[in-house]
Design a protein around this nucleic acid. Structure first.
Length: 493
RNA sequence: GCUCGUGUGGUGUAGCCAGGUCCAUCAUAGUGGGUUUUCAUCCCGCCGACCCGGGUUCGAAUCCCGGCACGAGCACCA
């Protein structure tokens, strides 16, 4: 047997099976029942990265076929498209909305009934469950094709109530895997009391496809070649493969990833977040404590870091739990080189500087490792500065880039300049002059709480959304000119 | 219960399909040190893993069988 030449370490995602460059079609299909969360990012990152690797196409599909249990949210359609572009770096090649495609699903449902590959079942869910467990056929299974078509048109004509009737795919009631036995393909929804939120859809339809049917038909219609999704949908693949066999279609290649939890968050269920927002626990989807893309980007987690994070996890089927520090480590790498440095003084203490030959201004670099970012210059005319209360307790300090001082008196100490050169090992602290700073606020998240610290923030001209580094504190995202939120964990006080 | 899937250091991940070059990769965390007028960045060192038991084989992280553990599906949710 021939041996591989060298075992090379794989980097990046593994190759796709049966993939030809330029002919790969991938998709990601969220339910628009809320904006995108951290968990959705995996599907977006993995699928869109394969698009780039294979020069293929990437479809964003809205699976909005449930109006009651997981009702879509109207503004999510736009938001999800924006968030997708933000995260993946470009727009999807195609956008499909399932609720626009109902006629196609009806057509295939009818075709399935005509070919006797499905039937209209009037058993209750409970009764059918008995059959599924007992591996026995339900009476509806033997109906004539004409009877099925007749019942189908009655469904469309609203002659049944939700729960009374369902269209099933004929598989085999003796299949080993109970999940696959004559699975339901379409059902009725009361769209009068639970209308679809899209005005053009509203109460227009009562017969709605279920995920396995809708997704299967749509994947075929769109020419999807590779499906990469969570392993919770493995049985979906098996169900859908049986449907594909009825239609004589070839099922796409599939890959799965396992379940991911984040230590600090647990899961990230859109439905649960929606409840928490509606109950007032969080003010909105963009709250920095929430694992939504909006919440994360709002506190300065970059799209590059998110991509690196998910690419590193890859597509193993293991169920894992990851600490947020992993994401933060990626973010630091992305953000540090570009983050201007600013001084923020928590619990500020005002000091009067005294000494000989005090210069008129002090200059310090915007970024210690990048001269091209320039200098920041503080006027020393007023000779009043702020230092952190905690530092003030230490008595003698080195004001960074300025002077060694000794503090005397309280509560407004005098800072006597001992030396401009560094003369000993006294601690180096950050500081700011009174005239070059404003009152400011620093927010941070911790254990589902938002903490606030008041202080003095160095004046700056950076736009909201800019990620800066507050010296000796951490990276922060500018919310407004005088308010910041910490990107990573909270202060360790 | 039935069905399916997964088990590599604290956390992830490579290697497994095509057994040897694996006293097991890389990252992150932790820890020690270096650079640095930030408790940042950067650099170096250390720490630490093949779920268990059989089997096949000259040789097993890799193949086979059996356990065990964990997860998911069995919805008229996605």
């Amino acid at each position: 047997m021939e041996k591989r030449e060298v075992k090379e370490r794989r980097t990046g995602l593994p190759d796709l099976k049966n993939a030809e460059k330029g002919k790969v079609v991938l998709r990601f299909a969220p339910n628009p029942n809320g904006p995108l969360s951290f968990g959705h990012a995996r599907g977006l990152v993995i699928n869109s990265t394969y698009r780039e690797m294979y020069d293929g196409e990437f479809i964003l599909r809205f699976d909005d076929t449930d109006t009651k249990v997981k009702p879509p949210m109207l503004d999510a359609y736009e938001r999800i498209q924006k968030e997708t572009a933000w995260l993946t770096g470009r727009k999807p090649d195609r956008v499909i909305i399932a609720s626009d495609r109902m006629e196609a699903y009806y057509e295939h449902a009818e075709l399935m009934l005509q070919n006797d590959h499905g039937y209209v079942c009037q058993c209750s869910a409970e009764v059918f469950k008995e059959h599924r467990i007992a591996k026995t056929n339900c009476p509806c299974r033997d109906q004539k094709t004409s009877e099925n078509l007749n019942l189908w048109s009655m469904m469309l004509q609203r002659q049944f109530k939700p729960g009374d009737v369902v269209v099933r795919v004929k598989t085999d009631m003796t299949l080993k895997n109970p999940a696959l036995r004559d699975w339901p393909a379409l059902r009725l929804q009361d769209t009068e009391s639970h209308p679809h939120p899209r005005p053009e859809v509203g109460s227009k339809y009562v017969v709605w496809p279920l995920l396995d049917f809708q997704s299967a038909v749509e994947d075929h219609l769109q020419g999807v070649t590779h499906i990469i999704r969570g392993k919770d949908l493995m049985d979906s693949t098996r169900k859908q493969t049986l449907l594909y066999e009825h239609f004589g279609w070839d099922y796409p290649e599939t890959m799965y990833w396992g379940r991911v939890k984040v230590h600090e968050w647990g899961g990230f269920s859109t439905s649960k977040m929606r409840n928490d927002i509606e109950s007032g626990r969080y003010p909105g989807w963009g709250d920095p404590r929430l694992p939504t893309l909006e919440g994360l980007s709002g506190r300065g987690i970059s799209n590059t870091a998110l991509r690196a994070f998910w690419l590193e996890l890859g597509i193993t089927q293991k169920d894992i739990s990851v600490p947020l520090s992993t994401l933060y480590a990626h973010n630091t790498k992305v953000v540090d080189a570009e983050a201007p440095r600013l001084s923020f003084i928590r619990h500020p203490v005002l000091c009067k500087v005294e000494g000989d030959e005090i210069p008129n201004s002090i200059s310090t670099p915007v970024h210690p490792n990048d001269e091209s970012m320039g200098m920041r210059t503080w006027e020393m005319i007023g000779r009043e500065i702020y230092i952190e209360n905690e530092d003030a307790q230490k008595g003698s300090l080195r004001l960074k880039e300025f002077a060694d001082i000794t503090l005397k008196g309280a509560p407004s100490p005098v800072a006597n300049i001992d030396s401009y050169e560094r003369s000993d090992k006294r601690p180096i602290v950050h500081w700011i002059t009174k005239e070059n700073s404003l009152e400011g606020t620093l927010l941070s998240t911790s254990n589902d709480e938002i903490q606030t610290v008041q202080g003095r923030i160095e004046k700056h001209n950076f736009a909201p959304g800019t990620i800066v580094q507050l010296e000796r504190i951490g990276y922060a995202c500018i919310k407004e000119n005088d308010s910041f939120i910490l990107c990573h964990e909270s202060f360790d006080e």
